[in-house]
Structure formats: structure tokens, C-alpha cells
Design a protein around this nucleic acid. Structure first.
Lengths: 163, 163
DNA sequence: TTCACTGCAAACGCTTTGCATATGG
DNA sequence: CCATATGCAAAGCGTTTGCAGTGAA
């Protein structure tokens, strides 16, 4: 699916969600969705705020928090806490399931993907009689190939299929 | 291992850790360790503070944060972020590996244990050349057997072995 | 004696809330 | 119209920091 197509689809999904729940379809909400889907990778509210301010949008932090909440509800954005107090977010439509590996030396967050997590999820659902909506798996550790500049160069940021 | 024995062992481990790193062995630090190991389950700094204050300890939040940091370093306590901004902690010596299931209806946190997570960890270490020190796996969902009082009565708080 | 550690309170940073104004339905 | 959403700023709240006094080594 092309990026342009994704943009259209998420707009439609968001619009449906707002309609179904009696929320207004304000230009701010769609502008925020569009900004989020114009990038990849993780972001926090503050950097999204600064970024939109720099582009001369008239937007407030309050509206960003409000809108992110709506986007979480309809699954277009996912939220992470990588041990710090500031929440991290990422666009999640049309992006493969993945988990995170956090380097305790350089602080960087890498993505990987291991399908076995789905089996654990299924077993847990069956045995504990839960309907699992989402999960978060984080590994914390140190890279054996840490470079002098403090980064793990051999790791790409895209999901790596394992097993 | 009995609770009394655990208490002695963690005191010894903490003492060794403090000695090895040139930290002082203050009574406050051992009092905090003892309080933490006199309970099971999750706790946050504020409730530990209130609890110790009620027991007439003269302790400050600053020292609690300081000491928890030392306890994290030597693996006697582990830290969790279940989606809220307040960190949760739990004693981790002589307690089997487990992960968490968070009920989105009642907010309760349950424990379960699935050995397959270890395989995922090993594969990730091999393929991505990381030394993984710890992990956190959280499942978020809703209990199919939610009671009228808003709790999931059939789930025990102890780890349930799956698979 | 010395300097790391302590309690206290102020500062900090992320998030939420209150309120007057604006606007979608 | 008018209830909901917005921007702004203040308040909230968990955590960190600064500092003068304390006590472990």
C-alpha cells in the first residue's frame, strides 16, 4: 500500500470513528493525524507540538493530547513507555506487528519482530479467559557491537524478522 | 526458601552490592529493603512512603528514590510501567520469572508465566547481537468473566504456568 | 575528620484541567 | 443556536535536584 493510500485510509477510519462516537470532525484533528502519518518512527507529544508550531499550525498541547487519545481508541496510533516518564507514540496502521529492543548504553530503541509472541498471546487468552487487545514486549540490554559514537550501527530501525 | 531466609539473603546481597560500589551501609537503606520484602505484590513510591511514615519511620521520598535505584541495580527490585505515569515496583529475589496481564476494565494487574518468552529472548540476543538484561511483556485486554464488582475473580494474583 | 547520605522543600517536566472563545452539526 | 472543541495558562502530580545538617567509615 502506498503512503498516499495509507493517508486516505486513516483519514477515513478516523472520520468513521469520530462519527460513530459523536465527536466533531475538526480541522485540527485531521491536521494532527496527517502530521503523524507524514513521518515514521517514534515521537513524543512535545516534539510533535514543536514540529507543528514550526510549520505555523495554530495548535495546543491540550488538543494534541485530546486527539492522540482518540487515535489510540481507533488503533491508528500506539503508545509506549520505554522506562522513562515521557510517553512515546507511533503510527500503527498498515505496519507489521513488532516489539522493541532498548539499548541501555545509547538509549536508542530498535524494532524486531518475532511471530512466537502471537502464540503466547493465544495461550494466555485461552487459559486466563481474557480478550487481549494489545501487548508490549520490551527487551532492555546492551549491544555487543556498540560503536565509539555510542550507537549500534549494525541495527536497522526497521523490524527484523526472527525465528 | 522461607520468608525469613529470603530476608537474610537479600540483606546480604544488598550489603555486598553497597560494599562493592563504595556506597555507605546506612540504616535507612536496610529499613527500606526490609519494608519492601515484608510485602508481596506491586507498590509505588508514594504508597511505600506513606506506609513507612505511618510506621513512624523518618524517611524521605528522595531517599526512597535513591534506594530503589540501588535495589534495581542489584536486581532485588524490578520496575514496571503499566501505561500510567507512576512507576510500579516489586521485590524480585527468589520469585519466578513472570509477566503481566492488565485488565482494561478493572485496572487490576495479574501475573502469568510462559517459558516461551525465554526462547524469544535467546533468539533476539543471537540475531541482533544484544546482551539482554531484562524484559517486560504486558498484555492489555478485558476479562471474559468480569464480575459485577468489577474484578476478575477467577484470576489469582500468583504466576500461572502456561504451555 | 570527611564526604556521602539524609530530610526537606523547591524545582522540574510531562500531562491534565479550567476557562473564555470559537465553531461544527 | 449551543454543546463540543479549541488555545492558552495555570494547576497537578510523579520525580529530581539543591542545600544545610548528619553520621558511616
Amino acid at each position: 500500500m502506498s503512503e498516499a493510500e495509507i493517508r486516505e485510509r486513516v483519514k477515513h477510519i478516523f472520520s468513521e470513528h469520530l462519527g460513530k462516537h459523536g465527536h466533531r470532525k475538526t480541522p485540527e484533528r485531521f491536521a494532527i493525524l496527517d502530521e503523524i502519518y507524514s513521518h515514521t518512527g517514534h515521537f513524543d507529544i512535545e516534539s510533535l507540538y514543536v514540529y507543528m508550531k514550526n510549520k505555523k499550525y495554530r495548535v495546543s498541547r491540550a488538543t494534541l493530547y485530546n486527539t492522540i487519545e482518540l487515535l489510540l481508541e481507533c488503533g491508528l496510533v500506539s503508545k509506549h513507555q520505554f522506562g522513562k516518564n515521557q510517553a512515546q507514540f507511533e503510527r500503527s496502521y498498515a505496519y507489521k506487528q513488532h516489539d522493541h529492543l532498548i539499548c541501555q548504553d545509547c538509549g536508542k530503541v530498535f524494532e524486531f519482530c518475532d511471530p512466537r509472541i502471537q502464540q503466547i498471546k493465544l495461550t494466555t487468552e485461552q487459559f486466563l479467559e481474557f480478550d487481549i487487545a494489545s501487548h508490549s514486549l520490551n527487551f532492555f540490554g546492551k549491544c555487543r557491537k556498540l560503536q565509539h559514537n555510542g550507537t549500534c550501527e549494525h541495527l536497522k530501525n526497521g523490524p527484523n524478522r526472527l525465528s
